[in-house]
Design a protein around this nucleic acid. Structure first.
Length: 423
RNA sequence: GGUGGGAUGGGUGAGAGGCUGAAACCAACAGUUUGCUAAACUGUCGUACGGGUAACUGUACCGCGGGUUCGAAUCCCGCUCCCACCGCCA
């Protein structure tokens, strides 16, 4: 959520920024400012009336104590008038707050200066690429065929037990899954991230804190009996650790990581994009999350990207990094880099990581602040990234490391899997 | 699921209609003393929002939401959460 202060001070900059998302916020912002002026006016009168009745109440108390109940009762009549206008104003102020809040919720984050104006994925910029995919001398199979051939993943069983998008991993497929999780977590720990095992369900306040609620609730699985939501990513529980937190010192850098399954309803997805592991309702992911002083955000983002790069290089996958254009970025993000690995058999790029900075957009909702050098409260910055999401990594590993009669396990994973080939 | 107890500032914890934005203690911060450390002493020390260049100032907040009252941390109603014991269960 954007800060009202920022809207008051930099309206035009926000309008210009949101244009990169193909959004014209002029009207909304002007509406907000009108309501805000109105709110401040009413708030001031409300405060003044409250001050007056506080004073009267004190006088009345003093009069009663010194036995002048006649005068006291006279004053009481005066307070009756104040009371009615006080409650009217209070309603007005609350109503205005709701209206402003409602409008603020509709505004996405303002893109960083580096973010390009654009409509969709076609306008994203490739900022880095690395590696070279395999060249096959045989007919390369897509991962869903390989998974079946080597009995690694059973999609049909998942359909039977739960539904589409909830696969079973079995045998070496399951072991590979566990190996990747351990590898990613170990790498994150070496990079200084503290590991957490978090709840897989969160309450409503947490959903609002990181921006999934109120607008995107259709994307999450909901448990009405207890009013819980299944987490769509570890970002939600990890970042919400810091909801309503005021860090006492400006020198902080909080680095967390965690493995969780992620649950996404993916309403509206269909077609070849959802084939096999490409899009699931439940998948595994190791997430890295950082809470930073605004001064360190740029460096932190850089470090996170280097971390993810390192993982992909160690796995020996061809990949590229995209800086998303305004139109393709998530609602809460100020800047996002997507990592895509090349799937040689499907002949397409698969998104395996998304690293974003949110600046104060989440912390404003979370009320996540720190005391700066002048002892003033300031909103902290939040960042997060996948490091990494498993299914498409598995897809790419199977497809790129197939030899025709077996699948090679990359060397870095072998200590974790305990085997070096799948056949 | 049953029964009972609780929720006050960073922590412990008083307060039981006006003298309480809140005692006291601890922690923290600044200073004095000190060869250094420790100790002692002095002072500062909640958050949010509004107004003001600022010093400052107004309002709100004692789990949350209502109510009674001229006046509520304190009384009444509803809710949430926490703790303890019992039952059940991994």
């Amino acid at each position: 959520m954007l800060e009202i202060q920022r809207i008051r001070n930099e309206k035009q900059a926000i309008i210009d920024g949101l244009k990169k998302r193909q959004i014209d916020a002029t009207q909304t912002l002007e509406q907000i400012l009108v309501l805000d002026t109105e709110w401040r006016k009413n708030k001031t009168s409300l405060d003044n009336i409250a001050a007056e009745s506080n004073l009267l109440a004190k006088e009345i108390g003093d009069l009663f104590k010194s036995g002048k109940s006649g005068e006291a009762n006279q004053l009481k009549e005066k307070t009756a008038v104040l009371k009615t206008s006080e409650s009217e104003l209070k309603l007005k102020v609350e109503e205005l707050e709701h209206q402003i809040q409602g409008l603020l919720y509709t505004l996405p984050n303002v893109p960083n200066d580096l973010v390009k104006n654009g409509r969709d994925a076609a306008d994203n910029e490739i900022v880095f690429s690395h590696g070279q995919g395999p060249v096959f001398s045989f007919v390369a199979h897509p991962h869903w065929d390989l998974a079946k051939k080597y009995n690694l993943i059973d999609f049909e069983l998942g359909v039977k037990v739960t539904g589409a998008g909830f696969p079973f991993y079995r045998g070496k497929g399951a072991k590979l899954q566990r190996a990747l999780i351990s590898f990613f977590l170990d790498e994150a720990q070496h990079a200084g991230y503290e590991e957490f095992i978090s709840p897989h369900m969160v309450n409503e306040a947490s959903g609002i804190g990181t921006g999934q609620l109120p607008d995107k609730e259709g994307q999450m699985y909901y448990m009405p009996a207890d009013d819980f939501y299944m987490i769509p990513t570890a970002e939600v529980p990890l970042t919400n650790i810091f909801r309503d937190v005021l860090l006492p010192d400006p020198n902080f850098s909080i680095k967390m990581c965690g493995y969780t399954p992620c649950f996404r309803r993916e309403a509206g997805s269909y077609g070849k994009d959802v084939r096999g592991l490409n899009r699931l309702h439940q998948f595994d992911k190791v997430e890295i999350v950082r809470i930073e002083n605004p001064q360190n955000t740029a460096v932190a983002l850089e470090e996170m990207m280097e971390h993810v790069k390192g993982l992909l290089i160690k796995l020996g996958l061809e990949f590229r990094i995209l800086r998303l254009c305004g139109g393709d970025m998530g609602f809460a993000s100020a800047m996002t880099y997507d990592f895509e690995v090349y799937s040689a058999a499907q002949e397409k790029w698969l998104e395996v990581s998304s690293v974003s900075r949110f600046d104060t957009f989440q912390s404003n909702r979370l009320k996540l602040r720190f005391k700066d050098a002048d002892k003033r409260s300031q909103l902290a910055h939040t960042l997060n990234g996948s490091a990494l999401a498993l299914p498409r990594i598995v897809a790419a590993l199977l497809e790129n490391y197939q030899t025709g009669n077996q699948i090679i396990i990359p060397e870095v994973l072998q200590p974790y899997t305990g085997f070096d080939t799948i056949s």
